[in-house]
Computed example of a mutant assay.
Amino acid sequence: MTDHPAPLAPALPEKVVIVLAAGLDLGQAANASACLAAGLAAPQSTWAGQPLRDADGMLSAAISHLPIIVLTADAARMAQLRERLAQPAPDGAGMTLFPAYAREIHDAAEYWTRHRQTSHRDQPLLGVGLAGPRRWVNALTGSLPMLR
């Protein structure tokens, strides 16, 4: 028996949003969305990935337990968002970036090195993933339209 309480599961965010740069082709938008969603969910084991087995015994992993809204932003709105991302995030908030240069990199270690060496304040972004309190996410994304 231990005298340490069991760790609490991290609270699920109130809202999850992915913002994509306007003008991405379908493949680029799908790739950026998948990468951003994976980056947001990875540190939060309660979001997705729980083992599931169907009636025939096929094992799979659960999809996200949270709705993920995909929005789009033109270049000016994406630049405004990028500037506001430098503000401190509230507790429990998470963010992922998909900088334009990432499209040319096909090795994770190379990307991690480039990301660490780059100031993203002036980098064009193809996408941003946000998860956290509804008020914070809404303040950053405003009235951006859904991806269509």
Rank of each mutant, 00 (worst) to 15 (best):
V16N: 03
K15R: 15
A30I: 14
L24W: 02
K15E: 09
A42K: 15
V17Q: 09
P10W: 04
A55P: 01
A22N: 04
E14I: 01
A30N: 12
A38M: 05
A41K: 01
C35S: 09
W47H: 12
G27V: 00
A30F: 03
G27I: 01
W47C: 11
L66C: 08
I69Q: 11
A38L: 09
Q28M: 12
G23V: 05
V19F: 06
I69N: 05
P43F: 10
A55N: 10
L40T: 08
H65S: 12
Q28P: 06
G57W: 06
V17L: 01
L20G: 02
S60A: 12
H65Y: 06
A32W: 08
Q50H: 14
A61S: 07
D56A: 14
A62L: 10
V17M: 01
L12A: 15
G27N: 14
Q50D: 10
G39K: 05
Q28T: 13
V16G: 01
G49Q: 01
M58G: 01
S64F: 07
L66N: 09
A34V: 14
G49T: 13
A62C: 07
A34R: 11
S60Y: 08
S64P: 02
A42Q: 11
P51D: 10
Q50G: 10
A38S: 06
D25N: 15
P13M: 09
C35Y: 03
Q28S: 13
L20M: 01
H65W: 05
I63T: 15
L52D: 04
L59Y: 02
G57H: 12
S64L: 06
L20D: 06
W47G: 02
A34L: 13
G57V: 10
G39A: 13
G23R: 07
